[in-house]
Write a protein that binds this DNA or RNA. Structure first.
Lengths: 97, 97
DNA sequence: TCGTACGCTTTCCATCATGGAAACTGGAAC
DNA sequence: GTTCCAGTTTCCATGATGGAAAGCGTACGA
């Protein structure tokens, strides 16, 4: 966690998206299905939130062929990492940490 | 910040309410007007969010006579402090802090 | 080549959240 | 009574949310 200016980001703050970012923060990428199980949301819900993070430029989705089928991997983009770090910094300010 | 089990609380998570709790966390109480200026929201907005936190049992509102008029002071209840601490703990888990 | 399965996407829908403007209310001062 | 003050409540328009169900492209299997 390097130094990033605190910047509250509503696009990240929504519970599901916050958890998505949190889950992606310390790894390169995670499979759609794995993420879905962790967050315990419906396919459609995760798909929509990922699409939104992708539209914001925070998440990169990549389809990779795996045993015959396409699996979707999601990972934070550099911008996504910065935004998430900034948002966490903002949360810290708010919480007084 | 003592040890409180992490517990994500949607009632606290909303940006305005999160900031209200953050602002009240380290003090006994804050005047309505002061809070409103800090958060930069309309009277109605703050009033509604405070009412909601009060309904949740997290905030206590107290009207105090001051130079002829009633001023409203808002402060966290013990339950509110616990809930806020729990929510912050949950955020920490999510952010991986 | 047709049928089926898989892995998401998109649509549909009902519910709730949000925030400001404007109207309203209760108590105090004149 | 009237006015002022400090919030409160109503109104309203916009958008978020999430799951079910239907849709879609790709990959086999017969």
């Amino acid at each position: 966690m390097s130094h990033v200016p605190a910047r509250f980001d509503p696009e990240i703050h929504a519970p599901v998206r916050l958890r998505v970012c949190g889950a992606l923060a310390d790894v390169g990428a995670v499979e759609f299905a794995v993420l879905r199980q962790r967050l315990e949301v419906a396919d459609s819900t995760l798909s929509k939130h990922l699409a939104r993070l992708e539209a914001a430029g925070y998440v990169a989705l990549r389809k990779e062929a795996a045993d015959g089928h396409l699996r979707t991997w999601a990972g934070l983009t550099p911008a996504g990492r910065t935004a998430f770090a900034g948002h966490v910094a903002a949360l810290r300010q708010i919480a007084g940490l």
